[in-house]
Amino acid sequence: MSATAARPATARPVRKPKKASYGSRAERRFAFLFVLPAVLLVLVFRIIPLIWGFFISLTDWSGLGEAEFIGIDNYAAMARDPNFQDSMVNTFVLLATLPVWIMLPMLLAILIHQGVPGGKLFRAVYFFPAVLSSVIVGSIFNVVLRFDGSFNALLGMVGIDAVDWLGNSSTALFSLIGVQLWATFGMSLLIFLAGLSTVSKEMLEAARLDGAKLWQIWIFVVIPSLRPIIEFVAVVTTIGVLTNMFGLIYVLTAGGPGTATTLPEFLIWLEQGRLNRPGYAAAISMVLFAFMGGIAYLQIRIMSRNANI
């Protein structure tokens, strides 16, 4: 198929560097210079604090005064902690919904780029929930999703029984996920639109002249050439849903009922801010960090078959 033949035009995010493929001396020197500010900032403000956090996770520190070294006790406690286990189960449920988080904004971006009627307006408007902060979004959905709320009223009209969407252990997590997806898809959409602008027009026209249908062009030309961006959105969304949902959890469900919407991030906040166990909170953070690293590795592996990380 002509579309596949055109693909080598796009490169993998990071190519396998062969020894011989290092650039000239000047290139290497400039390259180091170019990455230096980023590397310094990341080392000082993120990596070194992370290592410090790892040491805290090996202590029983209460946040004040002396900390006693307790080895892997915090990690062992995690294995016994049903709340932590529940939060991991919730995490897997959340991750199972990831394809939707990626495909929905991608599809919308392609449609807007394709010139769907009203596309320019949609492009501006889809971004609003992201601007208005989780407090407003939470206040709205609190009332929309409550037992006597408007969503149930709507369902009632088509004969579906009312459900306590946020208060029922089996629906709360999905309700939370739905609201967060709605509130943030505009950001991924923006990134996909930027990515779409690099898709070669000539290539599309060529495919068109070959007699390809629109949807065929999308699937065989557009989406493959978006691969670096899809990978980026997949990784960033995974990290986002695991580290950026505190605001919404806090206003919408407070982690409940029981532990139904307690994600590791919320548990870390509880352990550190409310239960004053920063050592234990640090241990959960380390596990979450390692977990996200593993998922990101898998995603990049799947996405770019010959990627080198």
Partner: peptide, 17 residues
Amino acid sequence: VILASLMIPVQVVLVPF
């Protein structure tokens, strides 16, 4: 390293930061 630093939960780095 840069990619990994994206995954650090913010709470854990607050005090050293």
